[in-house]
Design a protein around this nucleic acid. Structure first.
Lengths: 152, 152
DNA sequence: AAACAACTGCAATCGGCTTGCAATTGAGCG
DNA sequence: CGCTCAATTGCAAGCCGATTGCAGTTGTTT
């Protein structure tokens, strides 16, 4: 499964970005937070907190710390939360200037993930907003299917 | 928030449908199952198991029974599962001949639900399937926003 | 009416996630 | 550089949706 464009493009200076953003809010640049970003940077697809925890050099930090860090990073817009419907949140690094909005195609057999870079719903979104007089309409969309390997 | 077309159209003879379907699999037509369908029929929007439980005449059955029943009804295609991203599954009755596929517009303030009858993604779905050589591609899509009432 | 599989209630349990609290640590400052 | 204090962390307890093992109950079939 290929690495998507947005992964290639943006994932360089998370640390400096982190530093800048955190400093601006009098928050601290800590080991766990750096480690999490480092792990996410190396990983092409959304990860659960548990996966991040497992990827961390031998219990370098507590699982609760990861949960807390992900909330923080999400608030700061450095990370995007995805929901694959299996009850565990997944997170992906967001490149600078990118809003991180995209979708996934998930194999229901092996749980492999393909990123779908385009989003086709922007226009439909505003149509729906107008028609129902809603404001600030967003959407969550994921595709599911059976990947080539699992078809055999 | 209006009652959507598919709700008006199909929710009549669930009991006979239930009977037929269950008989075909040597399963039983029990009080709890009838009660659940009755409740879903009266309710225009997807319900959580807890809500179904609460709507049931004074602890008429156990919560675990509802969880089990919903799995069964889902397998039988009589009920459709939705995920609004708040960690609780929701279920909606599926009309006969209908596959129950549609989407929702959910208010992030008051949790009100509007059904979106159309689905715009069938074509995109097959494009994505072809492009990635996936089979049996489906999708989950929900819209979120702020409803008229909550905007004031 | 009997017989048996399906079903239910109950209680224990699981997994994701959150939280209170005491101990630790990073950042600004003298 | 070392001090100070708020931010952060680890730990353990706990919450909530959901699942499960088991013993007792019930629907269906004959």
């Amino acid at each position: 499964m290929k690495v998507p464009a947005h992964a290639r493009a943006h994932k360089r200076q998370e640390l400096s970005v982190l530093t800048r953003h955190l400093r601006g809010q009098s928050r601290k640049i800590t080991g766990p937070r750096q480690a999490i970003l480092e792990i996410l940077r190396r990983h092409p697809h959304p990860m659960t907190n548990r996966e991040i925890f497992a990827a961390m050099p031998k219990g370098r930090c507590d699982l609760a710390t990861i949960y807390r860090a992900m909330h923080l990073l999400e608030e700061m817009g450095m990370v995007k939360r995805f929901d694959f419907g299996d009850g565990a949140a997944r997170f992906e690094l967001v490149g600078e200037g990118d809003d991180g909005h995209h979708h996934h195609l998930i194999c229901t057999r092996c749980a492999g993930v393909v990123e779908i870079d385009e989003c086709f719903l922007r226009e439909i979104e505003s149509r729906i907003a107008a028609r129902n007089r809603f404001k600030a309409v967003t959407h969550k969309l994921e595709f599911f299917g059976i990947c080539p390997a699992c078809q055999r």
